[in-house]
Each structure stands twice: as structure tokens, then as C-alpha cells.
Design a protein around this nucleic acid. Sequence first.
RNA 1: GUGGUUGUAGCUCAGUUGGUUAGAGCACCAGAUUGUGAUUCUGGGGGUCGCCGGUUCGAACCCGGUCAUCCACCCCA
Length: 455
Amino acid sequence: MSKPSIPQGTRDFSAEVVRKRNYILSAIKEVFELYGFQPLETPAMENLETLMGKYGEEGDKLIFKILNNGLSDPKNIEKAKEGFEKILEGKNTAAITERALKYDLTIPFARYVAMNFGQLSFPYKRYQVQPVWRADRPQKGRYREFTQCDADVVGSTPLLNEVELANIYHAVFVQLGLTAYELKINSRKILAALADLCGGADKLTDITVAIDKLDKIGIDKVKDELSQRGLQSSQIHTIEKYLQISGSNEEKLAAAQQLFGSNEQAKKGMEELQYVLSFAKNTNLDIDFTLARGLNYYTGIIFEVKAPASVKMGSIGGGGRYDDLTGLFGVPGIPGVGISFGVDRIYDVLEELNLFPADLQVATKALFFNMGEKESSVAFECVQQLRLHKISCELFHEPVKMDKQFKYAEKKNIPFAVIIGSKETESKTAVVKNLKTGEQQPVQFSELTTFFLQS
RNA sequence: GUGGUUGUAGCUCAGUUGGUUAGAGCACCAGAUUGUGAUUCUGGGGGUCGCCGGUUCGAACCCGGUCAUCCACCCCA
């Protein structure tokens, strides 16, 4: 037998880690609920065709596909062999695989809305916190199984939704102590206008992919990449002027206005930005014209959240507006907008900045020492009494040296030890020791509940 | 998917040009201490050197493969 292991890019979470994750998750869920979003959960797996083609060519490759059962059944063998030939050619076939692990929460959500269109009342605001899987190669801040937290509003076009979502970001990050986060905003319409100006709509993807890398590779390499992607030097010059826009949000908008002139799309995009900025002033919004986002279903405002600059971690959240997501599933004309939190990355950031509260790790408040058969039965009564008052405590499982019991308490980060030996049994008074300060004091059995409720 | 890094005790890591029985610190167990831990002292257990194969009289060390890890690219949360 070889040593047991887990698949690449997956993790076990110990008690300590689960508590920290739950701290983040409950902060997010609380804010979602506060803004009137309702929970939704969808299956871990979807039909493959639900997912294929929704995330671009690259995305398709990163979907974990599930092998069909019963391929070795004699009556399936011929089909399986034919199917496998197709797989080797790089094509998927239902003969080999017809299900896949979900890749994000947005497409399954769109599928759900399309399926339940008649029953839902719009606008439908849902949040969803579930694991997703990507067959990417793991590295810093990147896992093959990770948790996404999404909130989306569908069936509603007003920009008030975008304003609310920006506020959700702000509320969550402030609550987590991550006040120096950056919330980047842009509009897909402005990018479309730029493409209009430089060679037409079919160049949109080429342009966005290249300019998205600006802060990583610098302006010269972006220009190289643009010319490699077939753009003329006059067009590249326009893009460069676009990328050089800087200053405050107002200054950026003014400069863009000058660049785009009377272009209708650009005008719309800038109105969107202006609206959201003016209503969500309190948040950390910052216009970033280089922001593009990979997923090609976005059509309006797009968001991306970056960790504080001191931490080397890319995006910890993102989202945007899509006009017709459910159209992919036969229900056209439902616009929506949504955001997502990357919990695993937020975790790493909070860890690096030491922002987790220390008291997260206190689960058991008091450990009652086991001082013998008679004594422990008295302690047992006390323990049960405390539990009735929702005070978590435990009785050590066997009467061993106090040394051992102290060490157990220390390891579990239990703040108090309660000693009930023969003397204490007689006097009905326990010795309560604060393990951090080392101080101890007598507390009558009848006063234990009050004592622990107060400390 | 492409390129690189690392893999030795529960954890962090030493380990000489290839040479007897592979080490340290922390952790663990027992005792000094039969009702007071996180300080001290003494003793003890624990390793198929990631896995498979090759070279060699001899491999933790050299070579090939494989798996895992971390990092970069692509892409993304």
C-alpha cells in the first residue's frame, strides 16, 4: 500500500483553517442577506453541454470531465472505442463523457434561471457559496478545487444594482479589516468603442487580452503584442493614448471623453461609470480603463477587486453585467449583473496581513479535570449544567496526571481549567484556573454558570 | 498545456569528492515531581532518505522515469 494522498490542487482543512474560512464565509453571507439576496445551491456536476463553450476555448480545456460509467460493458464497448478515437482528436463525445464538475457558479445559475423562469419572481437576487473545480495547474493562490461566493441580480437593468454590488464589496472587505482593497471598475462599452475606433468589433478580444496585461508587462510589450495581433501602428497609437489616461476618476472620464468624441458606445459607457461612481462614492471605486476581464459574456460595467498593493496576490473578486446570459439556454432577454468573491485568495491575504481575530480558535471554554471516579461524576454534573446555558466545555476523558490534562487544554487553546478533586467535592467549590494568566480562584458549583457567562 | 524548483523523523531542516550503524532542533513518551502545564534536568521511541528502475564492490548523494510540491508563463478567483 502506498501512502494515502489527495488529488493535486485539493486540500484538507483542519479545525483551525475551517474556523478561519467560516469567519470569511459568514461575513460574506451576512452582507448578501443584508442586501436582500437569497441562497441557492446547484449540483457539483452539470451536464457537459451546459458548460461547454461558455468560457472560451481555454475554459473548455479546464473543465473537469467525468468518465461515463459502464464503458466496459460488452454492449457499450464498440461505442466507447469510437468515442475514444474522437477524444484523441480533441473532440468531446457523449459516448465517453456527458457530465462535468462545475467550473463556476454563474453558468449553472443561468441554467437554473432558464429552467425555472416561470416560477421565479423578478428581479431575482440570489447568492451562492459552493466549491468549483478547474483543471488548471496549481500555484500561488490557485487551486483545482476552490470556493466561490457569488451574488447576482437578474431581470433588472437599472444601474442601482451595480451600485448595490459595489457597496456589498465594500461592506465585506471593511468588515474583514481589508480596508486597503482596490475596487477597479470599467465598462465593456468603452472597450467596444475603442475597438470601433481601431479596426472594428472583431478586434475587441485581441485588444482586451493585450491591454489587460499592461500593469504586468508594461506599455512596450503591450504594443508588441498588439502588432502581433494584427493591429496597424496608427491604431496602436490610439490605444496607447487610451492607456495613458490617468489621474482622478473625474480626470480620467474627461480625458476619455476627449479621446472618443461623439462615439455613441463610449458615451453610454461613460454615463454608466459616472452614475455608479456618483452613487457609490463611499466605496474604494477606481476607474481602470485597462480592466477587461476574460469572460466574454460581459456587456456593461465590469468590476475587479485587488488585494492591497502590499500583498502579491492578483484578483480576489470580480464581476460585471451581462445582458443575455440565459439566452444561451433558450430564454432570451433576461439581463443581469453579478459579483464573485474568491474566498481562498481572501484567506491567503488575511493570513499574510495577520488579520484573523485571535479568538476565532477558542471553541471549548473550560476543561474540567478528571480527578478520579467520584470526583469526575461531580464534574460531569457541572459540565452538563454549563452546556444547558450554551457554554461549551468538556470533561477530560480519563483520570490521568494533571500535567497531561493541562497540555490537552493548552493544545486546544482552552482558556480555563476547572479542578474538582476530593476537597472541592466536599466544599462544593471548584478551583478555576485561567490558563493564560496562571491565576486561579475558587468558584462555588452554583456560581459556575454565572462565572463563565461573564468571562 | 509549457518551463523551472524542491522532496531525508510528526514539523523545520543538516548530511563532505559516492564509503561502516543517516543526524540536530522542536514535538512525542517515561521519570526527577502521587493536586498545578507552557522554565529546567535525565532517559526513550520513531526514518522502505517520495516511488520505480539504472550505473557502481558500494547510492540519501550520480543517471533515467514517475508522482507530489512550490514558482513562472498561458489563463484565472
